[in-house]
Amino acid sequence: MKPEYLHNIATDLGLQFDSEARVMYGEREGFLLVIEGTETKNVFNISFSAKQGSEGDLIEEGKDIWDDLKTQSKAIHAISFNDYLTTVVVKGGMTKGKAVETLWTAIQDIVDFLLNHQFVQVNAATGEEEPIGLYQIGDTIYLIDDATFQDYHAEVQDTVQAYDDRKENFLLGIVGAVIGVIIGGAVALLVARLGYVSVLAGAALGFCTIKGYEILGKKLTKKGVVVSAILMVLTVLLVNQLDYILFLMDEYALPFDVSWSLFNEETFKGNFPENYFLELGKLAVFTLGGAWISVQSALEGKKNRAIARKIA
C-alpha cells in the first residue's frame, strides 16, 4: 500500500505515521499499538506486546483466552503470537472508509479485551513490565526498551560490517547468476508455453539471478546487479525464441536442432512469425517488470540491513 494511503488512514484514526518504516502507531489506554499494511490492500496487522499480569510468564496457557476475542469481534480475522508479541490480522474492506471503520472497531475490541483480562504492556523481547518504545531494525519493527535496542543495534552493526568486509568474487558471481537465470528462465518458459505472460515468473527470474550472484559472489554490488540485468534481458529474448521453436517441434513433429536452425534462418532473413514483436514486447514488459521488482527488493534489503533507529 502506498505511503500516502497509509498516512491518510493513520490521520483518520488519530495515529502517527512513520513514512520510512510505513507503519501507523499510537497509544491506547497504556498500550502501544503498531499497524502495518500487508501485500493485500486493506488487510492490516495490528501488533502489541502484553501479558496477563496475574499469570506472569504463562504465555502458552494464556493463548486460549484469545479465542473469545476472535469469535466475538467481527473485525478480527486471525491472531498469532511470537513470545510476548501478539499480531492481529484485520480485513479492512473494499474502500478506505470501510478500512478505517474496521480498524477502529478492531482497536477498540483489542483494547477492551486487554483491559478486561488485566493485561499489562511488556518488553516484547524479555516479557518485563517496563517502559518500551517503537524501534526499527532492518526491515523489522520491535516493541522493546532502549537497552534491548542497543544490544540488537550492536548485533546489526557486526552483521553489516561482516558483509561489507567480504571480498567479492566477480567470476563466481557470474557463474551463480547464470545458474540462477537458467532456473528463473525455465520458469518463465514454462509459463510462456502455457500461453501466459506473468509478473510472478519475472519475479522468480529476478530473484534467482540476483540470489545466485550473491551466493557464489559472496556479496551483491552494482557490478553484480548490472551483470544480472544483462543476463535477464538476454534470457527474455531466449525464452521468446525457445517458445516459438518448441511450437514448431509440436506442430510439425520436428527435432529440436532442425526447428532451431529453421527458426533462426527465417528470422535472420526478416521473416518473423505473426505477432512476433507483440508477443516479445508483452513478455519483456511483464517478465522484466517482475524481475525489476525482485532487483529492487534485493537492493532495498541490502540498504535496510543497516537501519537501526527509534521511531517513538
Rank of each mutant, 00 (worst) to 15 (best):
L172E: 03
K310N: 11
E36F: 14
A204F: 02
I311S: 07
F149E: 01
E36M: 12
Y276E: 13
K91C: 01
F48R: 02
D250W: 07
F119G: 04
L246T: 11
L143W: 04
G97V: 14
Y25M: 05
F286R: 01
R22M: 15
T71W: 05
I132P: 01
A177R: 00
K74C: 00
F81H: 03
T126Q: 01
N45Y: 15
H153D: 02
T105Y: 00
V178L: 13
T126V: 09
E101W: 01
N82D: 10
L13Q: 04
V88C: 04
A253L: 14
V23D: 01
D257A: 14
A203F: 05
T40K: 15
T126W: 12
G97T: 12
H7Q: 15
L237C: 14
I179S: 08
V122T: 10
I107M: 08
I46M: 13
L216I: 09
G289V: 06
Y252C: 06
A75E: 14
G62F: 00
D109I: 11
D112K: 13
A204R: 01
H7V: 08
F263N: 08
V227R: 00
T102N: 12
N8H: 02
V187E: 05
F263R: 03
S47K: 03
T71M: 08
D83N: 11
W260E: 03
G184I: 05
T235A: 11
N8L: 14
L143N: 00
Y213V: 06
I79C: 01
D165M: 12
G217K: 02
W292K: 05
K211R: 10
Y252E: 06
G195E: 07
L231E: 00
D112S: 07
Q150D: 01
G184W: 12
A21Q: 06
L134H: 01
L171M: 10
L115M: 07
M232Q: 08
I182D: 06
F277E: 09
L246W: 10
Q150P: 00
K2L: 15
G127M: 11
I46G: 05
G37S: 10
T71S: 11
L115W: 01
E274N: 12
G26M: 04
K96N: 12
K218V: 08
T38F: 13
A147H: 13
V156Y: 03
M232R: 08
L237T: 06
A10C: 12
L200G: 00
L242C: 03
A229K: 06
S80H: 04
F31N: 09
F272I: 04
M249D: 04
L115G: 00
P3R: 02
E266Y: 13
F113V: 07
N123L: 03
L242D: 03
L143G: 01
Y163L: 15
Y252I: 12
G26R: 02
D109N: 10
M94A: 08
T148Y: 04
F207H: 04
V43R: 11
R22K: 10
F247Q: 12
W66N: 04
Y142D: 04
E129A: 15
T86M: 02
E155Q: 11
K2T: 09
A147W: 06
M94L: 12
V285A: 15
E128L: 13
A192S: 15
K211W: 06
L231Q: 04
I132M: 05
L115P: 02
G37Y: 11
V120A: 11
K310F: 12
L190E: 09
G202N: 08
A204M: 09
F277I: 05
